[in-house]
Design a protein around this nucleic acid. Structure first.
Lengths: 205, 205
DNA sequence: GTATAATATTATACATAGTTCAATAATAGA
DNA sequence: TCTATTATTGAACTATGTATAATATTATAC
């Protein structure tokens, strides 16, 4: 019962190893054969574990994507947040963030599409959201906090609501891309979305 | 090849009959045994059609829900839009709409939860959205048009973007309900969401 | 009415996601 | 080394959704 935990037990280490091996194996297969064409059995076989074990690590196929993207984001988030501090206002921070994100999306559209769908599903379906942080949430939180500290963003509404709106902006920009990838104008779309985020739908009198 | 179409051919009529029969049968089973516990085979058997035929009408299980809810909405939309015209501004129109919607959600939480997830999935995954109008979209469009006609809502951004934001508001309110149904305060949440929709996240100077 | 083309239905078999469970193996702590 | 806990395995199982070839129904033209 009592946990020893000397810098993580052997078991923890092995689990983390397995996790990484599964993610790497799966992403490799996704790249080779495509996401949909890759089955969970193939992933299990390629990672040399039983199907049941695979599901023990990742309860649904999309969770592998989720883990991969979350990881990629985490690696760069410190740097991204640092860069945000250097920017003068919320608008420029959001534009930078969205530009960054959309570069990733355009690079791996299928992966991100599945990821977005999975994230949104969880947003609605899961009551408690503690552990299921998206890779984006810490960036979004940073934007929100910086903006509120400088008084630029309002503080009279629940934090969760503002955060949800930022999340909406991120997803809406991606959605515009998916709706028409050929004609998608990133900078225009991003500016419109940020404008709407900041100023709302009401006319300024 | 050439379509006769004398007020819809017999085939069209039969198809519509079948469709309605499937929807009614399925909703009955959902009510009796729950959505997840009802299988597509059970629905097919109860409607006395082959499984393949069922999938010919509804390619995924959620599409039955979607059709049912879309239908329910359509029946009341004319009346709802009429009521909206009688209201003085966008804010009160949105509050009325959201209050209405949330009554439905609270009444059939599971159904609407599946429905929302399905709708959002489609929003992202489907490139062209013509035929897949949600039951809500005409209401949302009415709110937008009324607000723009009176000059209350801005017209300098793409319609689709404003529409998406309204859709976000609808879904966000529902999500707050699902996150904590016991403590959910409908009127407060709705007011906050509408406020954010109208005024945006920036502080008013 | 009857022939014919187009469309819908049916039954069956199939692939995959995801679950369940009892047997087995590995690890933690004493 | 012993014991409790936790992880893995393999196998059988359920449900979605797809594919297909045979059959039935409908539309249209004659």
């Amino acid at each position: 019962m009592e946990h020893h935990d000397p810098a993580a037990s052997r078991m923890e280490r092995k689990k983390e190893e397995n996790r990484q091996k599964i993610i790497a194996t799966a992403m490799g297969l996704f790249g080779q054969h495509g996401y949909d064409a890759t089955t969970m059995e193939q992933i299990a076989a390629a990672a040399d574990i039983a199907k049941g074990t695979l599901y023990n690590y990742f309860p649904v196929k999309e969770a592998i994507l989720d883990a991969f993207i979350k990881q990629s984001f985490k690696e760069r988030n410190a740097e991204r947040i640092a860069r945000m501090h250097a920017l003068p206002d919320t608008r420029s921070r959001m534009i930078q963030m969205l530009t960054d994100l959309m570069a990733g999306v355009a690079n791996q559209p299928v992966i991100f599409e599945k990821y977005f769908i999975y994230r949104i599903q969880n947003m609605i379906a899961l009551r408690q959201d503690e552990s299921t942080h998206s890779g984006l949430i810490s960036l979004e939180q940073a934007i929100l906090e910086l903006g509120q500290q400088s008084g630029e963003l309002r503080a009279d509404l629940p934090q969760a609501l503002l955060l949800a709106l930022i999340e909406f902006v991120f997803i809406e920009v991606a959605q515009q891309y998916y709706r028409a990838p050929e004609t998608f104008k990133a900078s225009q779309t991003i500016e419109d979305c940020v404008d709407l985020f900041m100023n709302g739908a009401a006319s300024r009198s």
